[in-house]
Design a binder for these strands. Structure first.
Lengths: 185, 185
DNA sequence: GTATTATATATGCTATCTCCTATATAATAT
DNA sequence: ATATTATATAGGAGATAGCATATATAATAC
């Protein structure tokens, strides 16, 4: 699974705990990969059994011990192999588009509201994207590499471009609806 | 789940079997919703138990009996309620972007190949999108409604716009890499 | 002649995901 | 004072997805 490799990718920068990983995921790749907390812990256990990561327990008082994971040679090999492999195309699943697809049965005013909602949602998303560079800044030191940052930013750039396209699309549809260019039943 | 409502959406046009549905899905909404065959059958069974669809068995010789499903009043209510509801935002998951995100560790030539692959993949996707209108044409009669077709086409239009944006993005990155505008390690 | 595609449904198995909940303390915010 | 957030990990339960496979015949393609 891809989560495996995303985790390995981060551990390849430096050893981390499940807790650390959850934060890094949320700060840096949330715009294209949401990682569930319990899933991160379960995956780390599995990767450890597989020998792709190594666990080091750091004892603490008053708190659960930190379990720090580092990538192993095998893990690094698997990661690099996967990173340059051709991605198996994923089966698309977009429920908002199901709504659009069957929207024809509703009157124009109702459909306009649907697209206005999408328009605003894209505003919010773009605003959220705007905050990511600051969060990422904290990790610049961890990476100490402008090259890495370039590709981190590239994924964000794509997110922004897609959000804008979706917004334009929604707005074009709103215009069509308001100017009565959409056929009636 | 959204598959429930996509199925109800189609059954709202006319009664169909699982086999019919699989074809309609593949012909019309594959660009944003891939439906697994076994999942369609299982979902139909569940929807039947829920009372959202009704099953009529049509006996056949030499073949398994056709099990034709029609939407019920309850099902139609549920469908309409869902269609105009605000979509719960989905957790994004894009493995190709994981590859981009961690691409910095590879030399320029390797990364260029990754993006060239994406560029070509978008060409193929756009070509596939080009074939959809013909396939959809068969269903125009089923719908006998230009209004419905308008929204079918809208989903396709969005797919095309996004594919083009991704392609531009990939090409921009290729230029940056080839012109040495991407920082080295 | 042989292989594939179309017609039609169904189940087993596994992986995985998501949600919720549990535990425990310190520090910060209101 | 009280509530929330940060630190840290983990498991149960249920839903669903995906893949493979089974069955059986007719028609079409090569």
């Amino acid at each position: 699974m891809s989560l495996d490799y995303a985790i390995l990718g981060f551990l390849n920068y430096k050893p981390m705990t499940g807790y650390d990983l959850k934060k890094v995921f949320d700060d840096s790749v949330r715009h294209f990969w949401y990682a569930d907390q319990s899933q991160i812990y379960r995956t780390l256990n599995r990767l450890n059994e597989q020998g792709w990561v190594q666990r080091e327990v750091i004892e603490q008082d008053n708190r659960p011990d930190r379990k720090q994971y580092s990538i192993t040679g095998q893990g690094r090999e698997a990661l690099q192999k996967w990173l340059i492999s051709q991605p198996a195309e994923e089966a698309p699943h977009s429920s908002p588009l199901i709504q659009v697809f069957f929207a024809g049965q509703f009157p124009d005013e109702v459909v306009v509201k649907m697209f206005e909602f999408l328009d605003k949602a894209m505003d919010q998303q773009l605003a959220q994207y705007g905050e990511i560079p600051e969060k990422i800044e904290e990790y610049r030191r961890m990476l100490h590499s402008d090259r890495e940052m370039y590709f981190w930013n590239a994924t964000l750039d794509l997110g922004v471009r897609i959000a804008k396209v979706q917004q334009e699309w929604a707005r074009d549809l709103i215009s069509d609806l308001k100017d009565h260019r959409v056929p009636q039943k």
